[in-house]
């Protein structure tokens, strides 16, 4: 797993808190959820460890985004519970989210959009500004801090969305098909940036995508959602570990077979 390698790369003071014995940063047990008598999810379990990257894949409409919202509490599950231990550090939030559309507030400048999650955490205006500029620098958009969102391209806006999510230094970062609405070239570039970004953030990531190749490219684990037939609630069909190095993973001989295996599992459900 990449986790041990990246732990090695980070400063010792941080690394000591990051060893996986620390226990899960997210623990969901037996999650079920439905709308208007229609069950969407049934009995989903997920334990997520620090710095881990789990991709959730499945056919479109199977309930991937719903699962993400149940994990965050944006939607209340009908059964089961989710435990995201709150951060000990002041000025942080337990989790944050990157959406499919950037969903920046058009009435705020880029920087104040990134500051959104920092508001109400007891930070001063100056501290908020500094905390917003760090992730903006990380995604290469610090020069655009005082721009209005509509002056940025789609890919740039999505980068700001990622910066906004990182600014709160979350324990868990939820990403809901964040690259799905981007063109192929931008998508590839942002995928590479996300791989690089993982070295520099402590967050564990839950990444929803319908792109199987993307899931295998980025994740440590791929969780496959499926249902026996339409109308049935979705369950976790299988969870596969991706034991491949993140460097040039796409070119590794084991990459394509793994993608095909995930495709086959989805096809059977």
């Amino acid at each position: 797993m990449t986790t041990s390698m990246t732990t090695f790369l980070t400063p010792p003071s941080v690394a000591t808190t990051r060893v996986n014995f620390a226990g899960p940063v997210l623990n969901a047990r037996n999650l079920s959820l439905g709308f208007d008598d229609t069950a969407v999810l049934a009995g989903v379990d997920l334990a997520l460890y620090p710095r881990e990257f789990v991709a959730v894949v499945g056919a479109s409409g199977v309930g991937k985004s719903t699962l993400l919202r149940a994990l965050t509490g944006l939607l209340a599950p009908q059964t089961g519970e989710v435990d995201i231990p709150a951060g000990q550090d002041a000025g942080t939030r337990a989790w944050s989210m990157v959406f499919q559309a950037p969903r920046l507030f058009p009435w705020r400048r880029v920087r104040t959009n990134v500051e959104l999650g920092l508001e109400g955490l007891g930070l001063s205006r100056v501290e908020r500004r500094e905390r917003a500029m760090q992730p903006l620098k990380l995604v290469g958009l610090d020069a655009y801090a005082e721009r209005w969102p509509h002056t940025l391209s789609g890919g740039q806006q999505q980068r700001v969305g990622i910066a906004r999510a990182l600014a709160v230094r979350p324990k868990v970062l939820f990403m809901d098909e964040p690259f799905a609405s981007l063109d192929a070239i931008t998508r590839r570039r942002l995928q590479q940036e996300l791989i690089a970004l993982r070295q520099r953030t402590e967050a564990a990531i839950v990444f929803v995508t319908h792109d199987i190749e993307e899931a295998v490219l980025l994740a440590d684990r791929v969780m496959i959602l499926g249902n026996q037939e339409t109308g049935q609630p979705a369950r976790v069909v299988e969870t596969l570990s991706v034991n491949l190095s993140l460097d040039e993973r796409r070119d590794l001989p084991d990459f394509a077979p793994l993608v095909q295996r995930v495709e086959a599992i989805i096809g059977n459900h």
Binding site: L74, F99, R103, L116, G117
Partner: peptide, 12 residues
């Protein structure tokens, strides 16, 4: 309504 979800996701 997406804006409202953003606000909720970011603690507002």
């Amino acid at each position: 309504p997406g804006f409202d979800e953003v606000a909720q996701a970011f603690g507002q």
